[in-house]
Each structure stands twice: as structure tokens, then as C-alpha cells.
Measured scan of single mutants.
Amino acid sequence: DHIPWITAVLPTVIICVMVFCLILWKW
């Protein structure tokens, strides 16, 4: 059976995008 890697990667991607947007917003 396949491991849904997207389910494991998606939260990390969302957190990175939120942090990236927060850094851009504070500049």
C-alpha cells in the first residue's frame, strides 16, 4: 500500500508558507 506522503508533507509546506508570508509582511 502507498504511503500518502502528501499528508505528511502538506503541514510542513503550510507552516513554511505561513512563516514566509509573515516575514515578508513584517518587512
Results as ranks from 00 to 15, higher is better:
14 I>K: 04
10 L>C: 04
23 I>S: 04
10 L>K: 13
19 V>E: 01
13 V>Q: 15
11 P>N: 08
10 L>T: 13
12 T>S: 07
23 I>K: 15
3 I>Y: 13
26 K>D: 12
15 I>T: 07
6 I>P: 10
22 L>Y: 13
14 I>D: 14
3 I>C: 14
5 W>S: 07
3 I>P: 11
6 I>Q: 05
12 T>N: 13
12 T>K: 11
15 I>G: 05
5 W>A: 06
3 I>H: 11
12 T>F: 14
16 C>I: 00
1 D>Q: 12
14 I>H: 02
27 W>D: 15
17 V>A: 08
19 V>N: 13
4 P>Y: 03
6 I>D: 11
19 V>F: 05
10 L>P: 09
5 W>M: 14
4 P>W: 08
21 C>E: 12
14 I>W: 01
4 P>T: 02
11 P>D: 00
13 V>T: 04
26 K>P: 09
25 W>A: 15
2 H>S: 03
23 I>G: 04
20 F>L: 05
4 P>Q: 09
7 T>C: 09
15 I>F: 02
24 L>D: 14
6 I>L: 05
9 V>N: 08
5 W>I: 09
4 P>R: 06
16 C>T: 09
18 M>C: 02
1 D>W: 03
18 M>P: 08
24 L>M: 00
10 L>Q: 13
23 I>F: 03
1 D>R: 07
7 T>Q: 06
19 V>S: 11
10 L>M: 11
16 C>A: 04
27 W>T: 03
21 C>Y: 12
11 P>T: 00
8 A>D: 03
14 I>T: 10
23 I>Q: 12
7 T>I: 08
10 L>G: 05
7 T>Y: 00
25 W>C: 01
7 T>N: 09
26 K>L: 04
26 K>A: 02
20 F>H: 02
13 V>F: 01
14 I>N: 06
6 I>R: 04
21 C>P: 12
18 M>D: 01
20 F>G: 07
26 K>N: 02
1 D>S: 11
17 V>F: 11
4 P>I: 00
14 I>M: 06
19 V>T: 12
22 L>A: 04
5 W>R: 11
24 L>Q: 09
23 I>R: 08
20 F>D: 15
4 P>A: 10
21 C>H: 14
11 P>V: 00
5 W>H: 03
21 C>R: 08
20 F>I: 10
27 W>N: 12
5 W>Q: 14
17 V>Q: 14
5 W>T: 03
13 V>I: 10
26 K>H: 06
2 H>Y: 10
11 P>Y: 00
3 I>R: 07
13 V>A: 09
10 L>S: 11
17 V>Y: 05
25 W>P: 02
5 W>K: 14
13 V>P: 04
4 P>M: 15
22 L>I: 05
8 A>N: 15
12 T>G: 01
14 I>P: 01
26 K>G: 02
20 F>K: 12
11 P>A: 00
6 I>M: 11
25 W>Y: 06
3 I>M: 10
5 W>C: 08
11 P>S: 00
16 C>K: 09
17 V>P: 00
3 I>N: 02
5 W>L: 00
24 L>R: 10
11 P>G: 00
14 I>L: 01
2 H>F: 05
25 W>T: 08
19 V>A: 11
17 V>E: 09
2 H>P: 08
27 W>Y: 14
2 H>T: 04
14 I>F: 10
25 W>Q: 15
14 I>S: 00
22 L>E: 06
11 P>E: 10
2 H>M: 15
25 W>G: 12
27 W>R: 08
3 I>F: 03
16 C>R: 11
19 V>Y: 04
4 P>V: 02
9 V>H: 14
26 K>S: 07
8 A>T: 08
19 V>P: 09
15 I>S: 00
12 T>Y: 10
13 V>H: 01
22 L>F: 08
10 L>A: 04
9 V>M: 08
2 H>G: 13
27 W>H: 05
3 I>Q: 11
11 P>W: 10
9 V>D: 11
9 V>F: 01
14 I>Q: 13
1 D>H: 03
1 D>E: 05
23 I>D: 13
2 H>I: 09
22 L>D: 09
20 F>T: 13
6 I>N: 10
7 T>H: 05
10 L>R: 03
5 W>D: 13
18 M>L: 05
21 C>N: 15
21 C>L: 02
16 C>W: 02
23 I>C: 14
15 I>N: 13
15 I>A: 08
18 M>E: 14
17 V>G: 05
24 L>H: 08
21 C>M: 05
12 T>L: 01
16 C>Q: 12
27 W>M: 09
24 L>A: 07
12 T>Q: 12
25 W>E: 13
13 V>Y: 01
27 W>E: 15
24 L>K: 11
20 F>C: 02
1 D>I: 07
1 D>Y: 06
11 P>L: 00
23 I>N: 13
7 T>P: 09
6 I>C: 07
4 P>G: 07
7 T>R: 07
27 W>C: 03
10 L>V: 10
11 P>F: 00
4 P>H: 05
14 I>E: 08
15 I>D: 13
22 L>H: 14
2 H>L: 12
7 T>F: 01
1 D>A: 10
26 K>C: 07
25 W>V: 11
18 M>K: 03
21 C>G: 14
12 T>W: 01
22 L>V: 04
13 V>S: 09
21 C>T: 10
24 L>G: 12
1 D>V: 02
2 H>A: 02
5 W>P: 03
2 H>R: 04
9 V>P: 02
18 M>S: 00
16 C>S: 05
19 V>G: 07
6 I>E: 15
7 T>W: 01
12 T>C: 01
27 W>G: 12
20 F>Q: 02
22 L>C: 08
1 D>M: 07
18 M>V: 02
15 I>P: 06
15 I>Y: 00
24 L>W: 04
16 C>E: 15
16 C>Y: 04
8 A>S: 02
14 I>Y: 09
9 V>E: 06
27 W>I: 09
12 T>A: 06
19 V>Q: 14
9 V>I: 04
8 A>L: 03
11 P>I: 00
14 I>A: 01
12 T>D: 15
9 V>A: 10
17 V>H: 14
19 V>M: 15
27 W>A: 10
1 D>T: 11
25 W>F: 04
10 L>I: 03
24 L>I: 06
2 H>V: 11
19 V>R: 11
20 F>Y: 01
9 V>Q: 13
17 V>S: 06
11 P>K: 07
2 H>Q: 05
14 I>R: 09
23 I>T: 08
20 F>P: 01
20 F>A: 09
4 P>K: 08
26 K>Q: 13
3 I>V: 04
15 I>E: 01
5 W>F: 12
22 L>R: 12
11 P>H: 03
19 V>L: 11
6 I>H: 04
23 I>M: 02
8 A>Y: 10
27 W>S: 08
19 V>I: 08
6 I>G: 04
9 V>S: 03
2 H>E: 09
7 T>E: 14
13 V>W: 07
19 V>C: 15
13 V>N: 07
20 F>S: 02
23 I>L: 03
18 M>Y: 14
5 W>Y: 05
14 I>V: 07
11 P>R: 07
16 C>P: 00
23 I>H: 10
27 W>P: 02
19 V>K: 13
8 A>R: 13
8 A>H: 13
8 A>F: 10
3 I>A: 09
22 L>Q: 06
1 D>F: 13
27 W>F: 13
7 T>L: 07
4 P>D: 15
8 A>V: 15
16 C>H: 15
20 F>V: 10
6 I>T: 09
14 I>C: 02
25 W>R: 08
5 W>G: 06
18 M>F: 12
6 I>S: 12
16 C>L: 03
18 M>G: 00
5 W>N: 09
22 L>N: 08
21 C>S: 10
6 I>K: 07
5 W>V: 05
27 W>L: 08
15 I>R: 01
12 T>M: 13
16 C>M: 15
15 I>K: 04
23 I>W: 15
17 V>N: 15
26 K>R: 06
21 C>D: 14
3 I>W: 06
23 I>V: 07
13 V>G: 03
6 I>F: 10
9 V>L: 05
9 V>K: 14
13 V>L: 07
24 L>N: 13
8 A>I: 13
26 K>Y: 01
17 V>R: 09
17 V>D: 06
16 C>G: 07
26 K>F: 06
22 L>G: 10
24 L>E: 15
20 F>N: 14
1 D>G: 07
7 T>A: 09
24 L>C: 14
8 A>Q: 12
4 P>F: 05
15 I>M: 10
3 I>D: 15
23 I>Y: 10
24 L>P: 06
21 C>I: 11
17 V>L: 05
8 A>E: 15
13 V>K: 13
10 L>Y: 04
3 I>E: 09
21 C>A: 06
19 V>W: 11
3 I>L: 04
26 K>V: 12
18 M>R: 01
9 V>R: 11
7 T>V: 03
26 K>I: 01
25 W>I: 07
14 I>G: 00
22 L>P: 12
20 F>R: 02
17 V>T: 06
25 W>D: 08
22 L>K: 10
26 K>M: 06
22 L>T: 11
7 T>S: 11
13 V>D: 02
11 P>M: 00
26 K>E: 06
1 D>K: 07
10 L>H: 00
4 P>N: 06
13 V>E: 12
10 L>E: 15
18 M>W: 11
21 C>V: 15
27 W>Q: 08
5 W>E: 06
3 I>T: 04
7 T>D: 03
16 C>F: 03
3 I>K: 12
24 L>F: 03
4 P>S: 07
9 V>T: 00
15 I>C: 01
3 I>S: 02
13 V>C: 12
6 I>A: 11
8 A>K: 12
7 T>G: 04
6 I>V: 08
21 C>F: 05
12 T>E: 02
17 V>M: 03
16 C>D: 14
23 I>P: 12
4 P>L: 00
10 L>F: 06
2 H>N: 08
24 L>S: 06
2 H>D: 05
1 D>C: 08
17 V>I: 06
15 I>L: 03
18 M>I: 00
19 V>D: 03
2 H>K: 13
25 W>M: 05
15 I>V: 14
27 W>K: 05
12 T>I: 00
20 F>E: 14
24 L>T: 11
27 W>V: 13
15 I>Q: 15
10 L>N: 15
18 M>Q: 14
21 C>K: 12
12 T>P: 02
18 M>H: 07
21 C>W: 00
26 K>T: 06
10 L>D: 15
13 V>R: 03
3 I>G: 12
22 L>S: 13
18 M>T: 01
1 D>N: 01
12 T>H: 12
21 C>Q: 14
1 D>P: 11
23 I>A: 09
11 P>Q: 03
25 W>N: 02
18 M>N: 13
25 W>S: 01
9 V>G: 04
16 C>V: 10
25 W>K: 11
1 D>L: 05
8 A>G: 04
2 H>C: 15
25 W>L: 05
12 T>R: 04
7 T>K: 05
4 P>C: 09
8 A>P: 02
19 V>H: 14
9 V>Y: 01
18 M>A: 00
24 L>V: 09
23 I>E: 10
17 V>C: 14
25 W>H: 04
12 T>V: 01
